[in-house]
Design a protein around this nucleic acid. Structure first.
Lengths: 195, 195
DNA sequence: GTCTATAAGGTGATAGAC
DNA sequence: GTCTATCACCTTATAGAC
């Protein structure tokens, strides 16, 4: 796989990002060297710096891209309907989105502490924006009398934590289909919020 | 704080463990050097090797000690009673135990991937044993007709994931007391399992 | 039990040839 | 755009003095 010389104005950039995502998820940001990433891509370490100014920016760019994609995807399919329908849609959306990109999800909450403060603040703000989407659904449901939760903020975090747990065990082709998993968690979420 | 010479058959060992726990939780195992740990304790790096054969053993020892303590604590106060009572006790126990030792909890699920395979297998087995405690409660409740869950294994993991979420936001002296948090989560857990 | 000194090797990042 | 070579530094772990 190793190249010896020559130009490749092709797809090296995306391959660098893909390799970094995979390795960061497997071993952790701090444990992965630029040389390891380069070896995975099939270039020498120096060549990576054509695609990122430094290692930190590479991590930030992966997390930022992931959060943008998450919010855009929910924006596409989350809008409208009664609170109960929106909560069902959120539950199924969140599970599907997460299990489709386990590496990005993993580093998005494991490597936050390795972001420099300004980068951390940006990602944190986006994470909050996503949480707020769920909180608004719950608030509307409580106002409409169809949900009953002990505390809006805590119910929001509890539901997200429960749904995030899926990624720790779900594997495509396992005992349960994605649809079955979504349905089971919807059952539990629905009950947890008193619907 | 730095010593210059002399013997200290005192409490250096525990201080090494405490410093390592704190630093691993803050920055991650791979990002923390033996020199940093030594500086925190107030000794030179070489002195650490009086207390651990290597860095990996230090991590393993922290995780193993934590899991032993968890299982022993639950063994002390978890036994007996009706499924509903046992589930309430598990919920409150799990939350209290977790918020009392955030650093140990954090590294126990963040640094598993940095354990060597044999060490990982041991910790994983203990984690399973703890999960099984909850699964047995749910099974007994379902058998008794007081719980209703979509799937025993999934309900177990969903409840634990939800409860683990507390550590991401709870701080002593915050808006809610520990008892209030325990009560709110018990509300949501009870409903999630159809009790 | 702690120190200093050191071995052996890995780290992120840059310079300049092609 | 990629290579090779290199800088300055940090890493884990050990040896031997005190």
């Amino acid at each position: 796989m190793a190249r010896t010389q020559g130009s490749h104005s092709d797809i090296t950039g995306p391959r660098v990002r893909a390799a970094a995502l995979r390795l960061f998820a497997r071993h952790g940001f701090a444990a992965v060297s630029m040389r390891q990433i380069a070896a995975e891509v099939g270039v020498q370490a120096g060549a990576l710096y054509n695609y990122t100014p430094d290692k930190q920016s590479l991590l930030y760019s992966l997390l930022k891209g992931h959060m943008d994609e998450l919010l855009a995807a929910w924006d596409d399919e989350g809008a409208g309907g009664a609170p109960l329908d929106r909560l069902a849609r959120f539950t199924r959306f969140h599970i599907r989105f997460n299990v489709e990109r386990p590496d990005a999800i993993f580093i998005s909450y494991m490597e936050l502490r390795n972001l420099e403060p300004e980068n951390f603040a940006v990602i944190e703000r986006l994470r909050r924006a996503y949480e707020d989407e769920l909180e608004h659904i719950l608030r509307d449901g409580v106002a409409a009398g169809v949900f009953e939760v002990p505390d809006l903020k805590i119910a929001t975090l509890a539901v997200i934590a429960m749904l995030n747990g899926v990624n720790t065990w779900y594997r495509p082709g396992g005992r349960l289909s994605l649809d079955e998993v979504q349905t089971m968690y919807w059952d539990m979420v629905r009950r947890a919020v008193g619907a």
